[in-house]
Amino acid sequence: HNGKLCKLKGIAPLQLGKCNITGWLLGNPECDSLLPARSWSYIVETPNSENGACYPGDLIDYEELREQLSSVSSLERFEIFPKESSWPNHTFNGVTVSCSHRGKSSFYRNLLWLTKKGDSYPKLTNSYVNNKGKEVLVLWGVHHPSSSDEQQSLYSNGNAYVSVASSNYNRRFTPEIAARPKVRDQHGRMNYYWTLLEPGDTIIFEATGNLIAPWYAFALSRGFESGIITSNASMHECNTKCQTPQGAINSNLPFQNIHPVTIGECPKYVRSTKLRMVTGLRNIPSIQYRGLFGAIAGFIEGGWTGMIDGWYGYHHQNEQGSGYAADQKSTQNAINGITNKVNSVIEKMNTQFTAVGKEFNNLEKRMENLNKKVDDGFLDIWTYNAELLVLLENERTLDFHDLNVKNLYEKVKSQLKNNAKEIGNGCFEFYHKCDNECMESVRNGTYDYPKYSEESKLNREKIDGVKLESMGVYQILAIYSTVASSLVLLVSLGAISFWMCSNGSLQCRICI
């Protein structure tokens, strides 16, 4: 991952900044910058967002509201009850120091605090018919004063009620008058409520006091790749198909172990950190130390980045220098085999997901714990399936590479015959000098055995068991695999060879 928040398929997220979902939807004055928000790819909250409900109280069923919003990608904020005409018999300019803005008392931008007009609070009834052709999110509140005197001074009615009804919602609220500790300079409380109004449905408000009335509502448009994440990451000019709280993932790998919460087309989250597919040879310690064997393909974004291909070729060293050249036929066979294998694994496992966190309130801790156990169970199954699949494929890959290298080895052996000696570690020792032209003939299969047989015969008789390297004779190393990324691999195959001279070296080696 890149540690950044990015656009998702070209669409920017909605960053709530210092506000949370509650503050944004109710219209906390400190969240005025969010009022123009219309569309987004996903919503970003920060872990310690401080601006929620400015007048103390709870947004009821907040967790369910977050779940609903996680599939919303755009909205239209509109005046559901026009301020100047909807409440002619009531005062609608209630403000509070708890919702101060720029040093002055204020109130929510989407709600109206209705109080008595003169000395009376006549029963009010108002309704709205949803003609938007889509779901409408309606929010309101109920004020709970701290004393009967406060109730009387604001609403005149000691036994007030609030009723809200639609086809799918029907509740009646009565204020709970009680002494409470002071929070944000208030002994009173406000509880906030919401409902989704279906197209064509009607919502009716009736009250004799204590109503925090809707002013603006939201017509919602769903987008199934949307979601809500909690993150401290910063926004950058970048684009992605998959976003996590820790950063964007741009990967076609089937798995990731970065974060379980994802938005967009994302690899499946697994616990494993070692889900690797081999593309090189079986481990040979001396070669492995030099980083030549054991190439791997990573299938977990965050564990290993991208696929690494092994390729086969020849390396030689003689009086004229040293050089490398790919054996294109065996390399292409290996590439085709690995590509098919990788595609097979991805096809089997690479279903892209959006995974969002589930919200539970403080009273639902047991449910949250149960949900976590269920999620953990599914996660263990996914991890096991992934590891088992790759384990089985790896064994076949190792066998496949062994065969490829063996074929190259036999190709060289059949040409050199007794003009060189096998020394048991995949290397041959020449009994004759071999210049670049000679080396090329070994690589392309045109090695002239009779041409060098007499010199080889004489050297075999002279050496008589002495280690060949100390006599200045020449080696050919018969097994060799270097490691390159897919891009470098293609470039390498396009070149005939490249040279690395070893000044004054008397050794001649050709490596497979």
Rank of each mutant, 00 (worst) to 15 (best):
A233I: 14
A233G: 00
H236C: 03
N239A: 01
C242L: 05
C242W: 08
P245T: 08
A248M: 02
I249V: 13
N250Y: 11
N250P: 00
G264T: 09
P267C: 08
K268A: 10
L275S: 08
S286G: 13
R290Y: 00
G291S: 06
G291K: 04
F293N: 05
G294E: 07
A297C: 10
F299D: 04
I300Y: 03
G306T: 07
M307L: 15
G310M: 11
W311P: 00
Y312L: 08
Y314S: 02
H316M: 15
Q317H: 07
Q320P: 02
S322M: 14
D327L: 03
T331I: 03
G337Y: 00
N340A: 03
N343G: 02
S344N: 08
S344P: 01
V345S: 07
N350E: 05
T354L: 11
G357L: 10
G357A: 06
N361V: 06
E364C: 08
L370W: 11
N371F: 09
K373D: 08
V374P: 02
G377R: 04
I381M: 12
Y384P: 09
A386I: 15
L388N: 06
L389G: 06
V390D: 05
V390H: 03
L392I: 14
N394G: 12
T397E: 09
D402I: 02
N404R: 01
N404K: 13
N407K: 15
N407M: 11
L408R: 07
L408E: 08
Y409G: 06
E410T: 14
V412D: 06
N419H: 05
N419P: 06
K421A: 14
K421Q: 12
E422D: 12
G426F: 07
F428E: 01
F428I: 03
F428R: 14
E429C: 00
H432I: 05
N436E: 02
E437D: 09
C438R: 02
C438I: 09
S441K: 13
R443E: 15
Y449R: 10
S453I: 11
E454L: 15
S456V: 11
K457H: 11
L458N: 10
K462V: 13
K462W: 07
S470T: 10
I476V: 04
I476F: 15
I479S: 03
S485V: 14
V488H: 04
V488W: 09
V491S: 13
V491D: 03
V491H: 01
S492K: 01
L493F: 13
S505K: 04
Q507C: 08
C511G: 04
I512D: 06
